[in-house]
C-alpha cells in the first residue's frame, strides 16, 4: 500500500535530513516508525504526505505516485498530526462535513460514520462547538475523527496518544485494530514503545535520518545482536551507540 524507496530529502536541497530511507506498509499491517527526537520521522511523514519534494527516491501509495495521479494518491491516505491543527472558524461537525466533501463521501455514509465516531469518542455533546474552546485531548479527537471518517487505504499517524484520556486511547486502539482487519495499512510514529510493541506488526527505527533497524521485533533483535531485548532496549541501544 505504501512503498518508500531510497528516499533522501528534507527542507533544503543543500542539507538533506533523511538519507536513503526505504520502508513498506502492506494492507492490514501496522508499522511503527520510531526514533529519538530529530531522527527524521516527521520529515519522512511530510514527504509521504506530499508536503515536501524528495531529493531522491520514490514514494508510492496504492501503486501510484503523487506526480502521476495526485487525486488518487491523496484520496488514498489520511493523516493524524501530532499537534492538533484545526479550522478556527468551523465547528466540530463542520470539520467532519468539510472532510467528507473534500473526499467526496456520500451523505448517508458520512452521517452514519460521523454518528458512530462521535459516539465512540464521546464527543456528541461537543458536535456544534468551536474547537478553540476544547481541551487539547478533545482537539486531538477532531483529528482522529476526520481521519477515520474517510476510512482511507493508508493511515499515517504521528504520536496519536498525546493528550488523550485512557478511554479515548482504548477507543483509538480498537479502531486501529478494526481498520487493520478491514485492510487499512497504518504507519504510526510514536514514542510510547510498550504500546508500539504490543500493536505494531513491524518497525522502522530511524536514527540520524537513516534506517538503523527494521522488520519484526525478532528480526530487529537479530540485526542488533541482542536476542532478548525489548523494543525499548533496542531503541536505547541504538541511541547510545551514536
Amino acid at each position: 500500500m505504501l512503498s518508500v524507496q531510497n528516499l533522501t530529502g528534507g527542507y533544503s536541497r543543500h542539507q538533506p535530513v533523511i538519507h536513503h530511507i526505504s520502508l513498506n506498509v502492506q494492507p492490514s499491517e501496522i508499522v511503527g516508525l520510531i526514533g529519538v527526537n530529530g531522527a527524521g520521522k516527521s520529515t519522512t511523514i511530510k514527504h509521504i504526505l506530499g508536503l515536501l519534494t524528495p531529493h531522491e527516491g520514490t514514494i508510492e501509495v496504492d501503486r501510484t505516485t503523487l506526480q502521476a495521479d495526485p487525486l488518487h494518491y491523496r484520496s488514498s491516505l489520511a493523516y493524524i498530526p501530532e499537534v492538533p491543527q484545526f479550522y478556527e472558524e468551523l465547528t466540530l461537525w463542520e470539520h467532519l462535513e468539510l472532510t467528507a466533501r473534500a473526499y467526496q463521501l456520500p451523505k448517508d455514509i458520512f452521517k452514519e460514520r460521523a454518528e458512530f465516531l462521535l459516539q465512540a469518542f464521546r464527543m456528541k455533546k461537543a458536535t456544534h462547538w468551536f474547537p478553540h474552546t476544547f481541551s487539547k485531548g478533545m482537539q486531538q479527537k477532531i483529528m482522529i475523527l476526520c481521519a477515520f471518517l474517510i476510512e482511507p487505504k493508508l493511515l499515517i499517524v504521528d504520536e496519536p496518544f498525546i493528550g488523550l484520556d485512557p478511554l479515548a486511547i482504548q477507543a483509538l486502539l480498537d479502531l486501529f485494530l478494526q481498520r487493520k482487519k478491514e485492510g487499512t495499512a497504518i504507519l504510526m510514529s510514536t514514542h510510547i514503545l510498550t504500546m508500539a510493541e504490543k500493536y505494531c506488526d513491524r518497525f522502522v527505527l530511524l536514527h540520524e535520518g537513516q534506517v538503523a533497524l527494521s522488520g519484526t521485533l525478532p528480526e530487529m533483535r537479530e540485526q542488533a545482536g541482542l536476542p532478548r531485548a525489548t523494543l525499548e532496549e533496542l531503541f536505547i541501544q541504538i541511541a547510545k551507540d551514536s
Binding site: P70, R74, Q85, A102
Partner: peptide
Amino acid sequence: PMFVQIYP
C-alpha cells in the same frame, strides 16, 4: 491547517 494542502 495543512490539511488544505493534502485534500484530494
